[in-house]
């Protein structure tokens, strides 16, 4: 028979979510480094090393997410808060996953990036990483300053729209180029996979919106 003090808060969960976000940050930071290196130098050991670091950070984030899920299932928070946090974590977790998807294409397929796309790809990565930064801050704000969450959510929507427009522009230029169809398809895959980062961010922003609405009476 165990007796738990009923007033205890949830420092474990909050602390672990913050630790998870730090790992996700690290994963995305290494993603940026790896992608930039690939743009500058193409495939090589430096890119592979940065990709491996990004992958390690993603694995560490995954481990933390599993720990958080276990803590939540064991006995923390109200069922609805528990459910919301689990959905939120699952949604956030797709973002580093999407970044890994981009690095995996570069690592496995080693595509040669055409010069006319370099600027678009670089901008696209920056826009998508900005969307991720806004989501990361929005999730932190949900646990500390809900009013700020709403503003960040709008920022994510805006960045996702800009990312969509840039993707369309890049794909249009790609298909008006003289590249072989196979390379065009390969490049389109790279562009779409980068864009998936902000798509995932938008999905998480929608979820944050629902979580906020549910708490208004």
């Amino acid at each position: 028979m165990s007796f738990t003090f009923p007033w205890r808060g949830s420092p474990n969960v909050k602390g672990r979510i913050l630790a998870y976000l730090e790992q996700a940050d690290l994963c995305l930071a290494r993603f940026r480094d790896a992608f930039t290196r690939y743009l500058a130098e193409g495939p090589g050991d430096a890119f592979d090393g940065l990709r491996a670091e990004s992958h390690r950070a993603e694995s560490a984030a995954d481990d933390l997410r599993r720990e958080i899920e276990q803590t939540l299932y064991e006995r923390e928070l109200l069922p609805e808060s528990r459910g919301d946090l689990l959905s939120l974590l699952e949604s956030v977790d797709h973002i580093p996953g999407a970044a890994q998807g981009v690095l995996n294409i570069l690592f496995l397929e080693r595509p040669a990036l055409p010069g006319f796309l370099v600027s678009h790809l670089s901008q696209l990565v920056e826009l998508n990483l900005e969307a991720y930064t806004a989501i990361n801050e929005a999730v932190r704000a949900l646990m500390e300053d809900p009013a700020r969450t709403r503003a960040l959510r709008n920022r994510v929507d805006e960045l996702e729209s800009r990312s969509d427009r840039l993707q369309q522009l890049a794909i249009r230029e790609l298909y008006t180029s003289e590249l072989e169809l196979a390379r065009k398809l390969q490049m389109k895959d790279v562009i779409r996979t980068i864009g998936a980062i902000s798509d995932r961010c938008e999905h998480t922003a929608d979820l944050l919106n629902i979580i906020a609405i549910k708490r208004r009476i």
């Binding site: 949830s10 949900l142 646990m143």
Partner: peptide
Amino acid sequence: LDLDLFAYDA
């Protein structure tokens, strides 16, 4: 009060 998620839950 517009409490954050953990404060609302608590």
